[in-house]
Simulated assay, not measured.
Amino acid sequence: MLVTLIAAARGSSLLDARFGDDRPLDVAGWQALERAVPALLPLAAAELRYCSPTASSRQTGVALGLAPLSQLALRDCDMGRWQGMTLQEVTLREPQAVEAWLADPRSAPHGGEPLLAFVSRVGGWLDTRPVGEDGRVVAVTEPSVIRAALLYALRVPPHAYWRTEVHPLSVLSISGGPGRWSLRVG
């Protein structure tokens, strides 16, 4: 099976990125998507097409001609009481909690989902995808979900999550199946 994950076009500037951001695409996001459509359009040929439930993921998927099915398992990490806040806002209010969250992948000082649980949830989605006749799956989701999928597929330590960048409209392809995923470059 080949799973291709596409990072949704942006719904806000990087400086205004908020935990659990569900805003629709902004002007810059639509413009970037318009430029990317020709290169990403062939992915719409995949038999199985999904997206996270956020507005930006749905809009990106529709613009790419995917007509994607929304999947709760592809939602961003549950950030509990930090939901809707920027990292800067949270750091000003709860500096020790942010430090604990970044240092320990099992911690959830925000009352939401620990990083390890998030990675496991995304990995569970990967491992349980049905395989269509063409063996291809495509999904549009948040960059954080793609980072989690990368960690799960490669079985790298959780701290690698903080050292991985995924930009809007980036594409990650992994192949294989449960317990035997490989990164595909190119």
Rank of each mutant, 00 (worst) to 15 (best):
Q96A: 05
P114Y: 12
D22T: 14
P105N: 09
V166D: 11
R147F: 04
A149K: 04
R18D: 11
L87W: 15
R147A: 03
R184G: 09
A108H: 00
A63Q: 10
R23T: 08
T128R: 14
A63P: 09
F19H: 07
G29C: 06
L43R: 01
P42K: 07
V98P: 02
I146Y: 01
P168L: 07
L169D: 03
G61H: 00
L172C: 07
M79D: 06
E133K: 08
P143E: 03
V156R: 15
R180L: 10
G186S: 00
V98E: 05
A32H: 06
L2K: 14
E113F: 09
V171N: 05
L72H: 14
R49G: 00
S182M: 15
A73M: 14
S13M: 15
W101M: 05
E165H: 13
G20P: 09
L87F: 14
D21M: 12
V98Q: 03
I174T: 01
I174K: 05
G61F: 02
R49I: 04
R121M: 12
S107W: 09
S173G: 12
P178I: 08
S12N: 13
I174N: 00
V119Y: 04
L66H: 01
A63C: 14
R93S: 11
S57H: 11
V119M: 07
L87K: 15
L151T: 02
P168T: 05
A153R: 04
T91W: 06
A149H: 05
R106N: 14
T164N: 09
